[in-house]
Design a protein around this nucleic acid. Structure first.
Lengths: 159, 159
DNA sequence: ATGGATGCAAAGCCTTTGCAAGCTT
DNA sequence: AAGCTTGCAAAGGCTTTGCATCCAT
């Protein structure tokens, strides 16, 4: 890893190593804040911007990709993992994954047909996950006559 | 339209009408700022938050959907238009559309298989559009020996 | 009259960056 | 030494909201 970075003109530092390691331990849909929290638990002296910049660096060297789903928080996914899309539950804000290889093939075809040089895909399905639907069904018994006015606010960003 | 809103408890005002009308005249991947600019050209007194809130309202009553691609700006798409994905050019930040009906079918299947209640899809392909690639090819002649160090900054958000 | 709608200004929130000081190489 | 990194603080940039006032019903 150290060698790999050196070839690109980057140096290795304790902080950087900690951020990289922590990121790969976390692995899925990590946000800067989540990574920062984890790093902080090991070394409280590390700054937020260090985590942020190193997360960007991980992306630049091709080890991760940004994913933005639903709420306004940028998350990061390892690229070594096989292509996958995301289910985003509008209710509990959870993220599930689903396989994408079949669909990815079709997307590639579409892209080349339009003479577009594909760099990456982003496939997201928004909806409500099963466990949330179960809960809602129970609650539905007592709110049938209530005004169906739609909630006016966007889901608040998570801390 | 006025009647439609009334059934949901909303009132019609000149500003609201102007925002709605302007939005549907614009129609594709509109950002709040773009809509605000357009509205302002007709009535300089309209406030930004009025445009913003009415754009949200358009979404709430089901006439538009948020789409977030690439840069950190939220855009809005009419829902009456048939399902489509987006090509996002990493270079010129342009958005092209492509048909999604074939892929949407597959996504639905995946979703139901996972017992996920689909509300909407979001399919995005990032890459470089043809015209940008043409330009880059020309430039490439003189930059072959330059350091390939990757740019460190995210594309700046558009005003 | 009433309660939603508007405008302005001010928060909020996450994302980026400037800079001086500290470390790798 | 030379230059990348780090930390802190501050700036950005878009999104939301508080509030007094106004207006549609």
């Amino acid at each position: 890893m150290r060698e790999f970075l050196k070839t690109k003109g980057y140096k290795m530092t304790p902080q950087r190593e900690l951020v990289f390691r922590s990121f790969f331990e976390l692995g899925e849909h990590v946000s800067v804040d989540e990574l920062f929290d984890r790093v902080k638990r090991i070394d409280k002296a590390v700054g937020y911007s260090t985590v942020w910049r190193n997360l960007k660096l991980i992306c630049e060297v091709g080890l991760a990709r940004e994913v933005t789903v639903g709420d306004g928080v940028t998350r990061y996914d390892r690229v070594t993992r096989k292509p996958h899309g995301h289910f985003y539950c509008l209710n509990c804000k959870s993220l599930q994954e689903f396989d994408l290889n079949e669909i990815a093939g079709r997307l590639s075809k579409v892209a080349t047909a339009e003479k577009f040089a594909t760099e990456s895909f982003k496939v997201e399905i928004e909806g409500v996950c099963q466990s949330c639907r179960d809960k809602e069904n129970k609650k539905a018994k007592r709110t049938l006559s209530t005004s169906p006015k739609i909630s006016r606010t966007k889901p608040s960003r998570q801390k």
